[in-house]
Write a protein that binds this DNA or RNA. Structure first.
Lengths: 197, 197
DNA sequence: CGTTAAGTACACCGAATCGTGTGCCTAAGG
DNA sequence: CCTTAGGCACACGATTCGGTGTACTTAACG
């Protein structure tokens, strides 16, 4: 995962401060929230001098944005690549992945300014993700792919937000809804008897 | 609404500082976020001396909690009382009300500590609201009222969170899903041809 | 009238915020 | 070897944060 840490590859000079900063930030932002995490605490957690921190990132805002940028290749996207699943199964597989509060929602709520780079990024990500759902819906033969994709995206965000408030996992509820929507949107087919759970 | 403000009723002494504080807080918390709103700015906006502020509320935490407590009698609950609607229509009417980011979700995301009074309050509110949806679902004759109520609640939270991230209204998407769910959960009936919009 | 409670004005506190300036060190690369 | 870039330690600064202490004014009630 960190090819800079020990291997003499790429710009092999440093001791990999940048990577440590980003991963520490992602963790702290997730566990404590963005606003509740100070730059001092952050540099301590990353075992990086504060000076180095500011040599890599112009400021906290930029650091936040960079953290969000690195989240994409995390977990979800690979679901869309799974060839062992039918398009229909792929749409539902997204609702099997349990996760803490979506960092993009967190950023959008914690940061008031809609023009903040992190919020623009969050918006872009959500749009891109919905687009992927729409594509899958189209592949699956949905009657109205745009609508189904947008609907599934809303379900995911709902589960994420609601889980945070209730302190309880609510993904199963979203999955049940998704099953209904997919059944309704796809032309009648065998296997429609999918578990509503 | 404010019987203290001018009328010589109750503890009719003060000039109604408390009410001004709360309504100013609700507005600022909504517009700027909780963490981005300082007590100084708040006392200025409420046209109340900072000292008075702290004579009414032991601290910011308590003020936040009180603000959330006052949100309930706002808009939504009255939908459940509308006798001119069928139970079924009542379930769907909830999705007609456009609003900014739900303050309870906002608090749950902005405040890291799950034991914070405001977060406990948010949880309680969401549970109570879902319970009311469940009741309406039962009245409407849903096959599984608990499930339908919980599902509709998730849709509302999803629309709220997603609207914040996308900077776009997404309630219509949630309403469309709700229509499908209600149609599926209620025993076949005339009028099932409700607009999916 | 006088009492009393509500509100005011303003300075002040320690702690935390993001961010810098300075000088030194150390390891990788040629 | 020496150069050089990445990193470090640490003090500092300006601002803001939530919250207080003190002494004063005002208005309602009896």
């Amino acid at each position: 995962m960190t090819e800079l840490e020990k291997g003499p590859t790429g710009q092999r000079r440093g001791r990999g401060a940048r990577e440590r900063i980003i991963s520490a930030s992602q963790q702290l932002f997730r566990d404590q929230g963005i606003n509740s995490t100070g730059m001092d605490q952050l540099s301590a957690a990353a075992e990086v001098s504060k000076r180095t921190l500011y040599q890599h990132f112009a400021g906290k805002d930029e650091l936040i944005a960079e953290c969000l940028r690195r989240f994409d290749p995390g977990v979800l996207p690979e679901v869309f690549e799974r060839a062992d699943l039918t398009p229909r199964e792929r749409l539902l597989a997204v609702f099997e992945i349990h996760a803490p509060l979506c960092p993009f929602i967190a950023a959008a709520v914690e940061i008031p300014d809609p023009e903040h780079p992190a919020r623009v990024l969050a918006r872009d990500y959500k749009l891109a993700f919905a687009a992927r759902l729409v594509d899958s819906a189209r592949e699956a033969g949905a009657a109205d792919p745009e609508q189904l994709g947008e609907q599934l995206a809303l379900l995911l965000d709902g589960a994420s937000a609601r889980s945070r408030v209730l302190n309880t996992e609510t993904l199963a509820t979203a999955a049940a809804i998704a099953a209904v929507l997919v059944d309704n949107a796809l032309p009648a087919e065998e296997g429609t008897r999918a578990s509503v759970r």
